[in-house]
Design a protein around this nucleic acid. Structure first.
Length: 213
DNA sequence: ATCCCGAGGG
DNA sequence: CCCTCTGGAT
């Protein structure tokens, strides 16, 4: 089964795969993705309504007190770093981009608290520019399905996925991988019984590799 | 005890 | 490459 056929199967399993971070604007998506590091989307969605009611855009967040931001997002963890990032990112947006979220990868990645993964998600979801963000789910699923090698870093995984999957499918495939990873091919206790990829899965091999290092 | 749509610093 | 930041869910 080649990569495009794998994506076909994922889309049969999860026909409604999409971004699950609630947001109204590109700025709110950007902020929500920054908050989503090492946290579930459900947890982020619990804090963003009050956070965005208080600070709906870059102009408001740029003027906010970091401790006040931290109070709103405390329950999601890593809250000190994230509060600092939100304020610094928003100030940079005001100073360099007139408060608007830029669509270029380099502009996005230059923002405080915004790395490769966040920049790719914003380009894909907010601007519909073909991208492939590699997060914990995409990396795990790609390696289990043999689309990447155990020793590949996220950068290498992204390269391989882009090479193997048709460009016009990148944005949807990203969400297909996330849903598959989140609801079927979970990190712990994956549902291998009814998995269409079980016959060529590299899960055991991958765990053997991880153990001896 | 492990994992969750990571980024920055060493 | 590594480490740290961090609460909540399982």
């Amino acid at each position: 089964m080649n990569a495009n056929e794998i994506v076909d199967e994922m889309e049969k399993l999860f026909p409604h795969a999409r971004c699950e971070l609630n947001h109204e604007t590109p700025y709110q998506l950007l902020a929500a993705v920054v908050l989503s590091a090492q946290t579930t989307d459900a947890s982020v969605n619990r804090v963003t309504p009050a956070l965005f009611a208080a600070y709906p855009d870059a102009a408001a967040m740029a003027e906010a007190d970091v401790n006040d931001i931290a109070h709103y997002i405390h329950s999601i963890g890593l809250y000190r770093n994230k509060a600092r990032s939100l304020k610094a990112m928003s100030r940079a947006l005001m100073e360099r981009y007139n408060g608007e979220v830029p669509s270029s990868f380099n502009d996005l990645e230059s923002l405080p608290g915004v790395g490769r993964k966040t920049a790719n998600v914003v380009r894909s979801v907010a601007f519909d520019i073909p991208s492939f963000a590699v997060d914990t789910h995409v990396e795990r699923v790609s390696k289990r399905l043999g689309l990447a090698k155990p020793e590949d870093d996220v950068r290498k995984v992204e390269e391989k996925l882009k090479r193997k999957i048709d460009r016009d499918r990148w944005n949807q495939a990203h969400h297909d991988f996330i849903f598959f990873g989140r609801y079927q091919c979970t990190a712990r206790n994956p549902k291998c019984e009814d998995c269409p990829f079980a016959d060529f899965c590299k899960k055991e091999k991958l765990e053997a590799y991880k153990k001896k290092r």
